[in-house]
Design a protein around this nucleic acid. Structure first.
Length: 367
DNA sequence: AACACTTTCAACCGCAATAAA
DNA sequence: TTTTATTGCGGTTGAAAGTGT
């Protein structure tokens, strides 16, 4: 037995809001507030709408100081940075962008920003590797458009950025990877292999990015949809890769590649509201900001980087310093203990919220 | 001009978390 | 402590607008 619906769906109006409905809702809330009960609100004001619909309309459209469209480069960079670090926690991302709603940011990311960013990345990767990768390039042209917002996508974006910037990085050297569970190691290897073989190839919608029944069910549902039907089969489809996997891997790698000054602080991320006047402004790590600028503005940062600089930026650039020892211990010496490194680090939003503390978000890019 | 295809984005859906009874 | 109601969120849908042929 499923839960009762929040309203009688057969007898409430759906679809686009009229100006009259907007005015009714806006006037009432501005005057009397929501009364702490969205479900009861439409009846109070004589709107034949579901309470959830009213709430959404208010939050995403009618609320004061909402901005639509016209995202600035700074906002682009911030969204990218946050997406890579925390994934599709749109409400948290929106909290860092005054006047933006989670829905807007989500739409913007899915329709424009992701393509913009990864498209540039693809171009750069292609330019650099075209001479040796021609044999692999054409087959993925179609599938490159199909993207998933899975954890693997974040990992791959992470890897692409890393790989492009520093071709000698540990991402290309499995021997340098940390001790992680064999399954994760295998996934990572597969991802790297696919990346290297198919610089065009990004994510597949058929990817079983989560083991949850919900997602499995939805994947089945979409099998017959037009969107799925034109998707080429992918090796990624064999990867089961969830947020926990991602966080574990990236966190481990972040610990390795990032010196302390490469961490970006995200103060009070869990408790900020875009309406809070005194919220702490989150600014992206300057290094990431630069990289994203380069990516979003089609600058070839990789082309301008000297070989020496690349070596300097190599993940074990401090190999000769004493500071590497703990890292080596993490990467090479410790047996995998079964405890995720992320258990005390950045991945879990809920952890952030529970702890209520500022977290260091390690991106781990060598830029 | 007409049609097909793609993109955009407002709105919806269902689940999980939380609050209230 | 358990049950029920409500809120908040991320994923998804589908109509409208845009673009290409």
């Amino acid at each position: 037995m499923g839960r009762a619906p929040c309203c009688d769906k057969a007898n409430v109006k759906r679809g686009p809001w009229s100006a009259e409905e907007d005015a009714k809702l806006k006037d009432y809330i501005e005057k009397d507030g929501t009364g702490g009960n969205w479900i009861a609100l439409p009846q109070k004001i004589g709107l034949n709408r579901c309470g959830k619909s009213c709430r959404l309309r208010w939050l995403n459209y009618l609320r004061p100081n909402i901005r639509h469209g016209g995202f600035s480069e700074e906002e682009d960079n911030l969204i990218c940075s946050l997406y890579i670090s925390i994934g599709s926690r749109w409400s948290i991302i929106a909290a860092q962008l005054p006047g933006r709603t989670d829905n807007d940011i989500k739409n913007y990311w899915n329709t424009k920003l992701k393509k913009k960013l990864l498209g540039r990345r693809r171009e750069s990767l292609l330019n650099r590797s075209s001479s040796m990768k021609d044999a692999h390039s054409s087959k993925d042209a179609t599938s490159s458009q199909a993207l998933s917002n899975s954890a693997l996508e974040r990992l791959q974006l992470h890897m692409q950025l890393q790989n492009l910037q520093s071709p000698f990085s540990f991402y290309n050297n499995p021997a340098l990877w940390p001790k992680v569970p064999p399954l994760l190691h295998e996934k990572m290897t597969q991802s790297l292999q696919i990346l290297n073989e198919s610089p065009y190839q990004l994510m597949q919608p058929t990817l079983s990015s989560s083991s949850s029944p919900k997602n499995d069910q939805k994947a089945e549902t979409h099998e017959s949809s037009p969107a799925a039907s034109h998707s080429a089969p992918s090796d990624f489809a064999n990867l089961s890769f969830n947020d926990a996997d991602f966080s574990e891997l990236v966190n481990s790698m972040t610990n390795c590649v990032s010196s302390s000054d490469r961490y970006v602080s995200l103060p009070d991320i869990g408790v900020n509201s875009i309406d809070q006047p005194n919220r702490t402004q989150f600014l992206p790590d300057p290094i990431i900001h630069t990289e994203l600028d380069n990516s979003l503005n089609c600058n070839k940062s990789d082309g301008s980087m000297s070989q020496q600089n690349q070596v300097d930026e190599f993940c074990f650039k401090d190999m000769n310093s004493t500071s590497r020892d703990p890292l080596q211990a993490l990467w090479c010496d410790n047996e995998y203990s079964g405890q995720s490194a992320s258990s005390y680090c950045w991945d879990s939003t809920s952890a952030l919220l529970c702890e209520g503390i500022s977290q260091d978000y390690g991106f781990g890019y060598n830029m």
